[in-house]
């Protein structure tokens, strides 16, 4: 990719010089100009001549971060760098803890919403009143979906958010990321989620969340390699 778009393409730029208006008039013009000016205007270095120099805007010689030879890549980061905590490179390239948080929360929330919605949908299909008009049938299903979907989505989203915040905090404290961080973050997030319900529910929730974090660690490994 040349930079000619910035300065106008080289052909149009050269057409503005008196030397190359058209092929037949060219020589006559040149000769008369040479006569009147006392030098050959075609030999003068002007902007269009500089722009036509081969290799001037060779993309390979530009700064490597410009990346002009490959177009815009999936993540063409200018200022932002990828997350450089050791071992933190996940499936989706992430720049920092906030990217981890957003993607993790969003994915788990959508999963919860989807599964809750599906569960609500089948519940709604079961509970359609007999002989009801179509509008009422549709409303029954939608009511069941919105009863189940957002509840499961919200709960799982909150757990995922807590998990990601704790996980990133542990990463920052320990200076690296490994499975122990994930498991510990899962345990803490699960415990915190049910912390108001008593010791036993807290323990159960903690164990479940640790298990989910462990499954995620395994899945990540499977997906990455």
């Amino acid at each position: 990719m040349s930079m000619s778009w910035l300065f106008g393409s080289s052909s149009s730029a050269s057409s503005t010089t008196p030397a190359s208006t058209s092929s037949t008039n060219d020589n006559n013009n040149n000769d008369s100009l040479k006569q009147s000016l006392g030098f050959d205007p075609a030999q003068v270095t002007d902007v269009s001549n500089i722009l036509k120099t081969p290799g001037l805007f060779d993309s390979a010689r530009l700064h490597p971060l410009a990346g002009l030879d490959k177009g815009i890549e999936y993540l063409d980061l200018e200022d932002e760098q990828l997350n450089n905590v050791e071992g933190s490179q996940g499936i989706i390239p992430s720049r920092s803890w906030s990217d981890d948080l957003c993607y993790g929360t969003g994915a788990v929330y959508l999963l919860g919403l989807g599964f809750g919605g599906l569960y609500g949908a089948q519940e709604g299909f079961k509970n359609i009143p007999k002989g009801a008009p179509a509008k009422l049938q549709l409303n029954t299903i939608l009511n069941h979906i919105t009863k189940r979907g957002p509840f499961l989505g919200n709960s799982s989203g909150v757990i995922a958010m807590t998990y990601n915040i704790i996980d990133s905090t542990l990463d920052a404290i320990r200076g690296k990321h490994d499975d122990f961080n994930s498991l510990g973050a899962g345990a803490l997030a699960g415990a915190l989620f049910r912390s108001s319900a008593g010791i036993k529910p807290m323990f159960i929730s903690s164990v479940l969340a640790t298990g989910a974090a462990g499954i995620w660690c395994g899945a990540k490994r499977y997906l990455q390699y």
Partner: peptide, 20 residues
């Protein structure tokens, strides 16, 4: 704007960011 991801995947990011 390279601080945002390309289109289909950015939906997930926005979902999570708005939720958080």
């Amino acid at each position: 704007d390279h601080t945002r991801d390309p289109c289909p995947i950015v939906i997930l990011n926005d979902f999570g960011g708005a939720f958080a």
